[in-house]
Amino acid sequence: MNLRQVEAFRAVMLTGGMTAAAELLGITQPAVSRLVREFETSSGLSLFERRGNQITPTPDAVTLLAEVERSFAGLSRIADLAQAIRAQAAGSLRIAALPALASGALPRFLGRFLRDRPQVHASVLGMPSHLVVEAVAAGQAEFGYAAGPLERPGFLVDPIPSAAVVALPKGHRLESQTIIQPRDLAGERLIGIASGTLFRSRIDTALAEVDYSTLIETPLSYTACVLVAEGAGVSIVDAFSAGEFIDRGVVVRPFKPRIESGIVQLRSRQRPLTPLAQSFIEAFAAFLSDLSQTDR
């Protein structure tokens, strides 16, 4: 038994005759007759009563047609899904990201991306950068976003540069300045972030000659921004986290000299991306670029 035999049987049942079925299938009438006879043989059922050029379905044929129709409905759904996948309207996205993105910019953009893709299933895993790398390596995520720089065999890594910014509580004395420099932070209570990281080292280097106090520490820029909004101090954070707090009690200003706070997008060399994932990556990179410009 094969699909072509089933198609011929279904066409005869739907059209009522061999000739009409042949027209429906785009083949000859003898070919339809042969396929139907082969289907009867393979199924072990007598499906039609033949009287000259007239055929009448048997009760077995009527019963069998119901199951065939259910199968063809399933095939139709498969065909529809395949078309949706080709159009990037269906599929899946499995994304791992460091908290600076997973808590704000990433889900905000993902929501917009999915508006016109109701059949896409998406999962976002928020985790520290080293676990992002492991998630992508293990195939738990198709691609990920981690703190840069990153060099590791077996990965394709694309940097997404972004300058750090200063997060100030609304009404702060420095709010009127368009750019903040290290000397401007003298005497301020600084909320320190990401102790022991390259980003923190860059901040400490930039402020090496400035007298300030650090009484609050947190590993997360998002948490630092919450503290800033509550007036607990000021902080130098990545632009992506800070952007989520504009108009929420935080004022964002550029910092000079530039402190790189960018991230990297990473994916496995061994697993090619789907067109859907590639489209997301490209669109999200453009979104982050615009976000960084807006926050400056």
Score class of each variant (00 low, 15 high):
M1I: 14
N2R: 02
R4W: 00
V6N: 02
A8L: 08
F9A: 07
M13S: 00
L14Y: 03
G16T: 12
G17K: 03
A22S: 09
E23H: 07
L24A: 11
L25F: 07
T28Y: 03
A31T: 11
R34A: 12
S42A: 15
G44N: 10
L47W: 10
G52T: 06
G52K: 07
N53Y: 05
P57K: 01
P59L: 05
V62K: 09
A66P: 02
E67F: 12
F72L: 14
A73M: 11
S76T: 12
D80G: 03
Q83V: 12
Q83D: 15
I85R: 15
I85D: 01
Q88S: 05
A89F: 00
A89C: 05
I95G: 00
A96W: 01
P99M: 05
L101V: 03
S103P: 00
G104I: 06
L106E: 07
P107N: 06
F109T: 09
F109M: 14
R112D: 15
F113N: 10
F113A: 11
L114P: 04
R115H: 11
R115K: 15
Q119C: 05
V120N: 08
S123M: 13
G126E: 10
M127R: 05
M127H: 09
P128Q: 02
P128A: 04
P128K: 07
S129N: 11
L131K: 14
V136T: 12
A137Y: 00
A138D: 15
F143L: 07
L150F: 08
R152E: 14
G154V: 09
D158L: 08
P159L: 07
P159S: 13
I160P: 04
I160V: 15
I160F: 03
P161S: 01
L168S: 06
E175Q: 03
S176E: 13
T178S: 15
Q181V: 14
Q181H: 11
D184Y: 03
L185W: 09
A186H: 04
A186N: 06
G187H: 06
R189G: 13
I191E: 04
I193W: 01
A194K: 12
S195H: 10
L198D: 11
F199Q: 13
A206F: 12
A208S: 15
E209Q: 13
V210Y: 07
D211P: 04
I216T: 12
E217P: 03
L220K: 11
S221R: 04
S221F: 03
S221M: 04
A224M: 09
A224C: 07
C225V: 07
V226G: 02
V228T: 01
V228A: 07
A232G: 01
I236V: 11
V237R: 07
D238N: 15
I246Y: 08
I246L: 12
D247F: 00
R248Q: 14
R248Y: 00
V251N: 13
R253G: 06
R253N: 04
I259D: 10
I259M: 02
E260I: 08
E260M: 03
G262T: 07
L266E: 07
R271D: 10
P272N: 05
P272W: 01
L273Q: 09
L276M: 11
A277F: 05
S279N: 12
S279D: 06
F280V: 01
I281M: 14
A283W: 00
A286D: 10
S289C: 01
L291A: 05
